[in-house]
Amino acid sequence: MESVTPVSFSLPQRAVHWATALLVFFNLLFTEGMEEWNRAVRRTGSATAEQVASANIHAYVGIAILILLALRIILRFTSGAPAAPPEEPALFRFGAKLVHAALYVLLIAIPLTGIGAYYLGNSQAGEVHAEVLKTLLWIVIAAHVLGALMHQFYWKTNVLRRMTVG
């Protein structure tokens, strides 16, 4: 049976993409609960129930991101992905592949280092998680958004449409 390259992402792929994006931004923007828990544990060796609950929200969202990423990978293999638009220069196609690969790696590494820090007590994992990987993720997200905007406004392709309305 011959496989056909889709012209846009499937509805489940789009839903998983945007759900992941929302959860990623939630955890990037609302870190206070985890930070407060971490400070309390470092200072006193324990945390209040409220601090634990707040930290758990951050942790559970991170685990949900990891699960959604696994689902996204499965959907990518089962549903395929649209080809890059021909208007996109080869160098930018390569850059897009790098950015997407970096997103996948970071969205696996960040929850895993968070798990290492929160559940296993590995402070080095916590430092890598909160300092290095978080910063890299912001940079890669900026590149991802900039690439989408280049497609929409410079090359005038349908890349944004493929991930929004199909």
Rank of each mutant, 00 (worst) to 15 (best):
A21W: 11
T157V: 01
E2R: 13
S123N: 13
L98E: 06
S8D: 05
V145R: 02
I115K: 00
L71M: 14
I139Q: 03
E2D: 13
H129L: 01
A49S: 12
L66D: 05
A64L: 06
R76Y: 13
H17Y: 04
L112T: 09
F25R: 00
L136F: 01
F92H: 11
F77H: 08
T113E: 03
P111A: 07
R93P: 07
A64V: 02
A40V: 03
V52H: 06
L107Q: 06
F26T: 12
G80R: 00
E35V: 11
E87C: 08
G121T: 05
H129M: 00
R93S: 06
I67H: 10
L75Q: 05
P86G: 07
L71K: 08
W18Q: 03
T113N: 05
L23M: 14
A148N: 06
L91V: 15
A125W: 05
L112E: 10
A102W: 01
V159A: 01
S123C: 00
A96Y: 04
S10E: 05
S79A: 12
L160N: 14
A130M: 09
E88D: 10
P85W: 01
T113K: 04
L28F: 07
A59Y: 11
F92V: 14
H58N: 00
R42L: 15
A47H: 01
R161M: 05
H58Y: 10
S54F: 09
H17E: 04
I110K: 01
A21C: 09
A84I: 12
I110D: 04
L22E: 02
T20E: 04
E32R: 15
K156V: 08
A64P: 02
A21R: 04
S79I: 09
G45M: 06
L137W: 00
R161W: 11
Y60W: 15
N122S: 09
G62L: 03
I115N: 05
V4L: 12
I115A: 09
S46F: 13
L71Q: 10
N56F: 10
A81G: 11
T157G: 01
V140I: 08
K156S: 07
A148P: 06
I110E: 02
L112A: 08
Y119Q: 09
G126F: 01
L98M: 14
L69K: 03
S8M: 03
A148I: 08
I73R: 04
G80S: 10
F25W: 00
A49N: 10
L149A: 07
V99H: 00
I67S: 04
S8C: 04
V4H: 13
